[in-house]
Simulated assay, not measured.
Amino acid sequence: MNTLDVTVATIGRAHGLRGEIALILRTDQPEERLGRGARFEVSTGAGPRSLTVRSTRRQQERWYVSFDEVSDRTDAESLRGVELVLAVDAEDEAAEDPDAWYPSQLTGLTVRHVDGRELGTVQGVEHYPAQDLLVVRATDRRRVQLPLVEQLVPEVDLEAGIVLANPPGGLFDALPEDEQGPEPETSAPPERPRG
């Protein structure tokens, strides 16, 4: 079976005293992927850990989860920022939505401007509450973060290995020599008088 890693959610802050946790969703199928008994193998600062969904609930468009293994606020807070990732069957996912793509599939794709110029290579995707950012290693070796919104990334063609981008002016352009800021000082600072 050909599997695909799908980020379901990022763990947010603790909610209450009994280990309930707010989630930042990364899936459009939370009911299916976060069902009772769903199991996630995660990496934390303390090492690998298993988390099994005990229950989920929604309140004012926010999702909250309780795990069998998390029983208090301190433990819940220690998980903040951890991504919940599931391995799913790639063929089933493709059959469900042939135009869908996942962040793990973007790494290594060539980023081209809508005018045909090569801009760089996708290094990954960073998730933020407002929007996701496509991390691109530009052709001049700089690290560029491109908001992953349809206006700026109108097309992802997995078969061709291309991400089509329409970035705002200057985002991928190197700064001219005279606009790169002052040169760092290389001389030693003056000695202070001793008193």
Rank of each mutant, 00 (worst) to 15 (best):
E69R: 00
G45V: 01
A22P: 04
Y102G: 11
R62C: 14
G35T: 14
T44N: 05
V53S: 00
E61D: 02
L51H: 09
L34Q: 03
I24W: 00
E31I: 07
W63P: 09
Q60N: 08
D68F: 10
L106R: 11
G35A: 15
E77R: 05
S43E: 11
V111I: 10
E31L: 10
V85L: 00
F67W: 05
E69H: 00
S55R: 02
L34Y: 04
S66G: 01
Y64M: 12
E93H: 03
P98Y: 03
V53D: 00
G81K: 06
A46W: 08
A87H: 11
E93S: 07
Q29L: 14
T44V: 10
A87W: 03
E31M: 10
G108C: 02
T27D: 09
E20I: 12
T107V: 13
E69I: 02
E83C: 02
R58I: 11
S104F: 01
S78Q: 03
V42W: 05
T27L: 06
W63H: 07
D75L: 11
R62F: 15
S50V: 14
R57T: 14
F40Q: 13
A22F: 07
E77L: 09
V111G: 04
S78P: 00
A94L: 15
T74Q: 01
E41A: 15
V82D: 04
T44S: 07
R36G: 13
D72H: 11
R57F: 12
R112Y: 08
R62W: 14
H113S: 03
D28H: 03
R39C: 15
V65P: 11
A90L: 10
T27P: 07
D68H: 13
S104G: 04
G37W: 10
T74A: 07
A38C: 00
S55L: 01
A87M: 12
Q29R: 14
Y64Q: 14
T110F: 04
Q59C: 02
L86S: 09
D68T: 13
P98D: 12
W101I: 04
Y64E: 13
V85S: 01
Q59I: 11
L86D: 08
Q105M: 03
G37T: 10
